[in-house]
């Protein structure tokens, strides 16, 4: 084999191999093994048992509930993420760092606490508890509570993705468009959106995956009523506690597949539009 001339910006082979091996080994042990285990347990009773577990009415109800909660929480957080990134990236104002930190805050709140805060507000002994009870409005132990908890834990995902991106891209293009007389909405649609669409898509996907998988916060305020307020992660625990390991891991595998599917779509889009992506990187 003839000696290849390495470009100065390319890593030497030994470094490539070492880093590659370390990265692969770490990912294999930390991420792949647990995933393999989930699928192995899900298929432990054969393919039929796997599909039977999937089509059980309570399981379907939990899938429906999780999708519904995500379908409400994710769009709301997306709108918020765009608004926050627009304000922060395109304007200067005092207290910006503080505001960015507040947006990050839900990341650092323990999921248990995230559930607890809504109990402190809407619970029977919370701030609005008695008012809500008088008017027979259900927030906790019903869909609104589950949605609130989901919004809270996925709050920063879209904003976090967009803010650095839009700060980086600056505001020259938008200012040019505005000076040429484009309306604000049009400027956003024609100038900003094409520049941020990848970050936006990625943020939405992450937000969605996390929304479907949230366990701790939702468990505090779901009430765990079988077939009614059990989300997919809670249903997994219920099945597991029922000695139904195949069922539990089948639903877990379904969740993992949903997550991997959205990420596969993202990879496909990136590959399909690779040229366009490269162009947008050059800004």
């Amino acid at each position: 084999m003839s000696k290849r001339v390495t470009k100065p910006t390319e890593d030497p082979l030994w470094l490539k191999l070492t880093l590659g091996a370390v990265a692969l080994a770490f990912v294999a042990v930390v991420l792949v093994l647990p995933l393999v285990l989930v699928f192995k347990e899900a298929l432990a009773g054969g393919v039929d048992a796997f599909f039977n577990a999937m089509t059980e009415p309570d399981t379907l109800a939990s899938v429906k509930l999780s999708l519904l909660a995500a379908a409400i929480a994710v769009p709301l957080n997306t709108v918020f993420g765009i608004a926050a990134a627009w304000a922060i990236a395109k304007f200067d104002f005092r207290g910006k760092t503080f505001l960015v930190t507040l947006i990050d805050l839900p990341f650092s709140v323990s999921p248990v606490v995230a559930g607890l805060v809504y109990v402190l507000i809407f619970g029977n002994h919370g701030w609005f508890g008695s008012t809500l009870a008088d008017h027979d409005i259900r927030i906790l132990f019903a869909l609104p509570g589950i949605v609130l908890a989901t919004i809270f834990v996925t709050f920063p995902f879209v904003a976090r993705e967009l803010i650095p991106l839009m700060v980086d891209q600056g505001r020259d293009e938008e200012e040019a468009a505005a000076t040429l007389g484009a309306s604000g909405f049009r400027t956003f649609l024609m100038v900003t959106l094409p520049n941020i669409k990848w970050g936006l898509l990625y943020g939405i996907l992450l937000c969605n995956a996390r929304a479907l998988g949230e366990f701790g916060a939702v468990s505090v305020l779901s009430g765990k009523i079988r077939g009614e307020t059990n989300t997919m992660p809670l249903h997994i625990q219920l099945l597991y506690d029922n000695y139904d390991y195949v069922g539990a891991f089948a639903v877990a595998a379904l969740l993992a597949m949903l997550g991997l599917l959205t990420l596969a779509i993202k990879s496909f889009l990136e590959w399909r539009y690779a040229d366009e992506l490269a162009a947008s990187h050059r800004h």
């Binding site: 619970g123 002994h125 919370g126 906790l140 009614e228």
Partner: peptide, 19 residues
């Protein structure tokens, strides 16, 4: 309908408004 969980946390849910 049934809801199952740790006895204490179930009691707390009822106190907080589980119907």
């Amino acid at each position: 309908s049934n809801s199952h969980g740790g006895s204490g946390s179930q009691a707390r849910s009822v106190i907080d408004g589980l119907q």
